[in-house]
Write a protein that binds this DNA or RNA. Structure first.
Length: 430
RNA sequence: GCCGCCAUAGCUCAGUAGGUAGAGCACUCGGCUGUUAACCGAGCGGUCGUCGGUUCAAACCCGACUGACGGCGCCA
């Protein structure tokens, strides 16, 4: 049994091959039938003609339907008329299941495709996105393993918020109300005291009723935390990480990039280091060079990020946000009062934020002070506060939206198309 | 939560100044030995999202609701 991709080669010409998969396209003109068969590796045209097959077999093959499953064996030959350059002359075959009719045809509506997601993921384009996604997840983990980080796992049921606000899903936990995690950061911070450098890949849940092309209610959150790291140290790892992931995709998925129409040359420009721009300098740049109208203290919304990042062809780091724009645990910058040691990584081509990170406060009183200012009860965060009492050290971390990263790398219009089963405000099926 | 847009055949969409609905694809049958989302002929296929209102008459006008998509805010 061969994989289709393997027999698309001059080495296989005139040799016998046996493949199995699903009918991708079928065309018949009576005495000759073309069945394009697909498996996970690719597609190939299979030809049924009366040279090799009897009348009954010809009739049976000509009435096959899209997505029916079958096994085919025959001789491989080169033919420019075949969609992938080679074809297989069918000598024998076995049908596993002949479909009545496959619901998805050439006309594709958004709602219909979302309702039939379980079938749509078979499409050639989606298959390629899923392969790229697989590379991204593997490359993320590999990069950190190669850089002395340990992989850890944090709980999904939690009792404290990380960010504050009403963005948490509440679930019944043996009669007690608890939340689904929106970030594993605090747990990662506890783990650096034994492992020093840790990372995790886990879902995060946000109950925000966001209706945009870059939000999911359940998304894959890749987070890292490193002892003794400054904000700058963290950015250095992150830019190398992104460069590594993009390189792995270029190396392993060039055919997939081609199938989804993503220009590989755009990705080849993604080389570390990435430019670091202080928030206040970015505001000035946006106003002077890009004709925008921003004030110091404005948060960068989706429009702003788009209008800025459309001018860049590689990611940038935005650092030194004003204190009031970010959450309580960020460490203030001693050299720039009112600003914090943090960074957002914005992806180019208008994609915007994919990473948020920075240095954490490690002084006990400073943390208690910031909790108070944000109207948070230190008792709820007792275990997080404890870290500042027992061998506290400088450290930094980050959170990366893997689905956003895949969306950008694949050049997709909507984050929904980066994940097999997107969970959004209005959709939990299929 | 706010704003916008949409809902007609299994799918994608037309549709008339308000007068009882149409195409392409899919499917079924027939034709064709090199097709490329094949082509040609025929057939099958609809309480025009739901409820209510205006009218002699509503898919079309009005209202509410439901569902879907997009944008903002929030964030990754």
């Amino acid at each position: 049994m061969e994989k289709i991709h393997d027999i698309l080669s001059d080495k296989f010409i005139n040799s016998e091959a046996e493949i199995r998969g699903w009918v991708y396209r079928i065309r018949s003109s009576g005495k000759i039938t073309f069945i394009i068969l697909r498996d996970s590796s690719g597609i190939i045209q299979c030809v049924a003609s009366s040279d090799n097959l009897n009348e009954d077999q010809m009739r049976e093959l000509s009435s096959m339907t899209v997505e029916s499953s079958m096994e085919v064996s025959g001789t491989v030959r080169k033919d420019d008329r075949a969609i992938t350059g080679y074809e297989l002359a069918i000598k024998s075959y076995k049908i596993y299941e002949r479909n009545e009719n496959f619901p998805i045809t050439k006309d594709l509506g958004e709602e219909f495709l979302l309702d039939n997601r379980h079938l749509w993921i078979r499409s050639r384009e989606f298959t390629s996105v899923l392969k790229i996604r697989s590379t991204v997840f593997k490359a993320f983990a590999d990069f950190f393993y190669n850089n002395s980080y340990y992989q850890v796992q944090a709980p999904m049921f939690v009792s404290t918020a990380t960010e504050g606000g009403s963005t948490l899903f509440t679930v019944d936990y043996f009669g007690e109300k608890v939340n689904l995690t929106q970030s594993s950061q605090f747990y990662l911070e506890t783990l650096i005291y034994s492992l020093e450098k840790v990372f995790t890949i886990a879902p995060s849940f946000r109950a925000e009723k966001s209706r945009t092309r870059r939000h999911l209610a359940e998304y894959w959150h890749a987070e890292g935390e490193a002892a003794w790291y400054s904000n700058e140290d963290m950015m250095k790892d992150e830019e190398k990480l992104i460069e590594y992931i993009v390189n792995e995709v270029i190396k392993n998925n060039s055919e997939d990039l081609n199938i989804i129409g993503r220009d590989i040359n755009v990705l080849k420009k993604i080389r570390a280091p990435f430019e670091r721009i202080k928030y206040r300098d970015l505001i000035e740049m946006a106003n002077k060079k890009f004709g925008m109208d921003l004030k110091y203290g404005d948060d960068l919304g989706a429009d702003e990020e788009y209008n800025i990042m459309i001018h860049f062809d590689r990611p940038i780091f935005v650092t030194n946000y004003p204190e009031e724009l970010k959450t309580f645990y960020h460490k203030p910058d001693p050299e720039n009062p009112g600003e914090i040691l943090c960074h957002d990584m914005l992806a180019p081509e208008g994609y915007g934020e994919v990473i948020g990170g920075g240095e954490r406060i490690y002084d006990l009183n400073e943390l208690l002070d910031r909790l108070k200012k944000n109207n948070l009860n230190p008792e709820d965060y007792y275990w997080y506060v404890d870290l500042r009492k027992y061998g506290s050290i400088p450290h930094s971390g980050f959170g990366l939206g893997l689905d956003r990263l895949v969306t950008w790398i694949c050049g997709l219009k909507n984050i929904r198309d980066s994940i097999p089963y997107p969970r959004t405000v209005r959709r939990v099926k299929p």
